[in-house]
């Protein structure tokens, strides 16, 4: 490959099939980026969690995925965005085991551990965007 792909792909996540598609798209990018098998697995798992949150808690939204390059390292960056209710208490939402529903409350906190960069941007009443990056070694 010659340099990073700057074209980002946007995927709609409005059904459970969208969550499956998100996993598949991320797998392709993770392989293109030559992440190790363990890092691929971690990234796809984190993507699956965040895509499901976008669908279930955010009422649907999008995943924007791209390969990024910075200071001679390459990575995969994923951004999950929705216009749902937002998160009132971010610290609480990031606590292991805390859920507002019937989940296990591991999606947000767990996916944060699985990636290198994790940025949560949310405004109650407006929506939530979670952006994660996994860098190649």
């Amino acid at each position: 490959m010659t340099g990073p792909s700057r074209t980002s792909e946007v995927l709609e996540i409005t059904t459970t099939a969208g969550v499956v598609q998100a996993r598949q798209q991320v797998r392709v990018l993770a392989q293109q980026c030559r992440l190790s098998l363990v890092d691929q697995t971690k990234l796809i798992t984190a993507a699956s969690e965040l895509a499901r949150n976008t669908l279930v808690h955010g009422g649907g939204g999008t995943m924007t995925a791209l390969l990024v390059e910075e200071r001679a390292r390459r990575g995969v960056r994923l951004s999950f965005a929705d216009h749902g209710p937002g998160i009132a208490d971010v610290d609480l939402a990031l606590t292991d085991g805390w859920t507002s529903g019937t989940g296990m409350g591991l999606g947000l906190s767990g996916s944060k551990r699985l990636v290198d960069d994790f940025v949560l941007d949310t405004t109650p009443g407006e929506g939530t965007t979670v952006t994660i990056t996994k860098w190649g070694r």
Partner: peptide
């Protein structure tokens, strides 16, 4: 798979 086991532990499951 080993990669799945490693990921599960880090996820907290």
């Amino acid at each position: 798979r080993p990669a799945v086991a490693i990921t599960l532990v880090e996820l907290g499951l």
